[in-house]
Nucleic acid binder design. Sequence first.
DNA 1: TCAACCATGTAATGGGTTACATGATTTT
DNA 2: AAAATCATGTAACCCATTACATGGTTGA
Lengths: 194, 194
Amino acid sequence: MSLPYAILTALLEKPSSGLELTRRFDKSIGYFWSATHQQIYRELGKLEESGAIRALPGPRQPTRGQKKEYEVLPAGRDELAAWVARIEDPKPIRDALLLRLRAAGVVGTEGLEAEVRRHLVLHRAQLAEYRAIEERDFGEGGKSEADRLRHLVLRAGIDLERFWIGWLETARAELADMRAGAAADARTGPAATA
Amino acid sequence: MSLPYAILTALLEKPSSGLELTRRFDKSIGYFWSATHQQIYRELGKLEESGAIRALPGPRQPTRGQKKEYEVLPAGRDELAAWVARIEDPKPIRDALLLRLRAAGVVGTEGLEAEVRRHLVLHRAQLAEYRAIEERDFGEGGKSEADRLRHLVLRAGIDLERFWIGWLETARAELADMRAGAAADARTGPAATA
DNA sequence: TCAACCATGTAATGGGTTACATGATTTT
DNA sequence: AAAATCATGTAACCCATTACATGGTTGA
């Protein structure tokens, strides 16, 4: 539901071709709304047909394999502005790792601790990346309204990673503790815990 | 990718019919992996065909509209245990509200503050619900391994809501500040900020 | 000229969502 | 007997993902 608006936003920030958009998604917007080039081309087609965007009139660009740049038309901008103010409930979380922890309650925690550690490494790396971006792009002053909003979004990403890191650390500790308990059981007989 | 495992987990916790599963998803597992009854029936069919679960042999249950209970077979349990330990990267976030903030950078923040306030209310309510569950189900002691894991999952939900509440509060403050700035502009002339 | 890369696309598949259909059971 | 509710399903659509196809440009 949101991809067309993500594209409109990107195109308003800077008119681009499909491939350029794909690259920009990979390193910026994609941090909170990812998309592949196939999705982007399909959506560009729809947006053009609906009159929200148009191809920039360049030298000539009929054929395949030829670069094609788009810009947003007033109708597209209006749609985007309407969407910004629209009432839309937050989606409930959907996280496979949480599900796996729950599953471990019935089939055992075998192998889970390693996976938790691996996720910790990944989230720490992501946090470092976000912080580097923060220093580079929002080090000091300047602060246009758009900058302040982009910084706000980045801080959400940073705090989210911090949340995951904190939670994963307690999960790892808890799993280690269970492993220790299980080892003790093996020595003294499982009845001790039951 | 995860729905079949969510169902296997639920069925291991307690053999159930499709509708019972749907209800249990609505009030427990669904907090971090939601599913509609259509998805569940479709998936139950696939799981039965693949030999991961089977219908409990009841009085007789051929027809439509007749209750049909399922239980997990050893093959299904094995698949679930393998999935728990499987290497699977965390999915990047996908959040429409963050996208809308970014969009507001190019089309203006009109209407966004109200939406942020609305989300704050919703997240506060969700947090209250989680905390009530925590008190009810994990008040004190008892603590089987499965209980500890379920509590861990619940704490993830709680901390996530706390993260959102904190972030939404700063977002609201920032938006209010921009509104004040815009009002000042209107009095003194926009050049003061540009 | 051939390989690498830039650029745009098509096709197939699968999961999620919404709307609708149908049969069985219980309650009034 | 009618209405409400329980219960299982079908169908259609949309979005996302993966694999593949095709044309154009540039440099070894």
